[in-house]
Structures are given as C-alpha cells and as structure tokens.
Computed example of a mutant assay.
Amino acid sequence: MHTMWKGSISFGLVNIPIKLHAATEDKDVKFRSLHKECHTPIKYEKICPACEKEVENQQIVKGYEVAKGKFVVVEEDELKELKEAVEERAVEIIDFIKLEEIDPIYFNRTYYMSPDGGNKAYGLLRKALSESEKVGIAKIVIRSKEQLAVIRVYQDTLVMETIHYPDEVRKAADVPNVPAADNVTKKEIDTAILLIDQLTTTFDPEKYKDEYRSKVLELIQAKQTGRDFVTVKEKEPAAQMTDLMAALQASIDRTKPKSKRPGRPKKAAAKTSGGK
C-alpha cells in the first residue's frame, strides 16, 4: 500500500511514528476525449488569451482575485515559508470526544495509519480509544493545507478521517424552497414509519454495488471482445527528397513569384476637334 505521508501522532507526551495510506480509491470509469474525425486524444494546452500563445509551467504564478480582474500575486517561496512555519510532520491530538457528536456532513477523506516503529505506543492508543469509546480530534498539514481530522479505530487499525472546518460547510438555512412546517397527517406519518420499519436491516456494505459502472464496463468489454474499437490515425510522414537537384528545383518552384497577367493595351487618345 502506497505511503503518502510520514510523521507521528502525538497526544500528551506520547509520540507514535506513523505512515498514512489512502483508505479509499476512486473507481469511476474514466474516458479520454478523442477527435471524432481521427480518434486522436485531444491535448489541453495552457493558453494566455491576452498574448495568444502557449504558456510554460515556469511562466505561471499564483494569483488571488481580490476584485474582478485584479489579483494579488503570491510567490512560491512565500507559501513555502508559511508552510514550514506550521508543518511539523506531527498529527497533534488536541481533544477527545464521542464519535456520534460529529455530523457526517463534516467528513471528507479517510486514511489508514500504520506504525513506523513504536508498535507498543500504537497499540496503546488503539486500545485506549477502543475502551474509552472516544475518538481523537487532531490537526495535520497535508499538501500545503492544514486539516482538521478524527483519529479512531476501524477493524483493529487506526484510521484518520479529515473533516471540514465549520466555515467550509454551507448553512442548511441557505437551501432554497425548504418547507417551514411539515404539512402531513398523523396517518401519513404512521404509514411512512411502518415502511421504514419494514425496510430496516443491518448495514452490510457488500450488499451495495455500483450498477451503472458495472454496465459501462460490460459495454466496454463487449466492444473489445467484438473488436469494435478505434485506433489513433497515424500521422503521415513528410515526403523526403532523396535527389538533391529535385529538392532544389521544388524549392525554387514553390518560392517563384507568380507571373503578372499582361495588362490591357492603352487606348489611343481621342483626337481633339482642333487637331489635324
């Protein structure tokens, strides 16, 4: 399992060296964008609309838009200095709480935590969290962003789940068209609760499948088996002139100025009445 961060967990004077591993993965079926005419993958280039030319990565700087069309430029060295000031490569547990106190809307991304030495201290925290039925609230810097996180036990392994800060969660009161009161009858409520009771079961994650993804993969497999696929159109190589004289003559012909069309002859001037 790929290690994406190394550091330590600290709570009180206890320090546990750990590694972070992504606990989930995106299994969406990803498609490439092809040119319909020749089925070549489309390139996405960084173009400056003002200069009308492609921009290299080293020519790009970070800017924060403070007003329409006005930016404050922040240099990479300035961001690096700020990052080093807060990044200590430690997951500092600052509080312990009950997991049910956190609404699921706050949860973001899950990581497994493996011990990087210090197995006894790892086991101590795992056991203490399990028996106290608590989770740790911690802070950690990942990819230049200070994250709030929950540390808990999952299947005998410590996991860390990053959670959103309160100002990152939009207010439910701002959701439009939510009715202010429940305009339902007692009979309707009783019937709905009866239906919920009939559908209530124990959560089994293996029961749920991504049916759309499965059907897309089946379609791709069927097309591949039937050899119903396209290939990238090869770029035709430029014709090479092996005869030096032929190449020279072709160059002359291509650069030869076009001959001017002969102009019409000028008409003779009309004789005036006084001329003889």
Rank of each mutant, 00 (worst) to 15 (best):
K276L: 08
V141K: 08
I163M: 12
A50C: 03
K30Y: 10
S273V: 08
N108Y: 09
T191Y: 11
Q198W: 05
G274I: 03
P17Q: 08
K62L: 01
L199P: 00
M241V: 08
E206M: 06
L148S: 07
P17K: 12
A238T: 14
A247D: 06
L20F: 13
S251H: 12
K215I: 07
F203E: 06
E188L: 09
T185W: 04
F31E: 03
F229K: 13
E88Q: 12
D95N: 11
V86M: 11
V55M: 04
I189N: 03
V159D: 06
A270T: 12
K98Q: 09
I9Q: 06
K53N: 12
N15H: 15
G63K: 06
H35P: 03
N108K: 10
V216I: 15
K139H: 14
E37Q: 12
H39P: 01
G118V: 03
F203Q: 05
L82G: 01
V135N: 06
V86Q: 10
D204C: 04
H21T: 14
Q240E: 15
L79I: 02
P179I: 12
I137Y: 04
H2G: 09
A22F: 08
E101V: 06
S214E: 15
S214H: 09
I163V: 13
I220W: 05
G12Y: 07
E75R: 06
T157Y: 00
A173M: 04
S251P: 01
S144E: 01
R264C: 00
D156C: 00
E234N: 11
L99F: 14
I220S: 02
R227L: 13
L13F: 15
I252V: 10
G275S: 12
E146Y: 08
K145C: 11
D167W: 10
E206A: 11
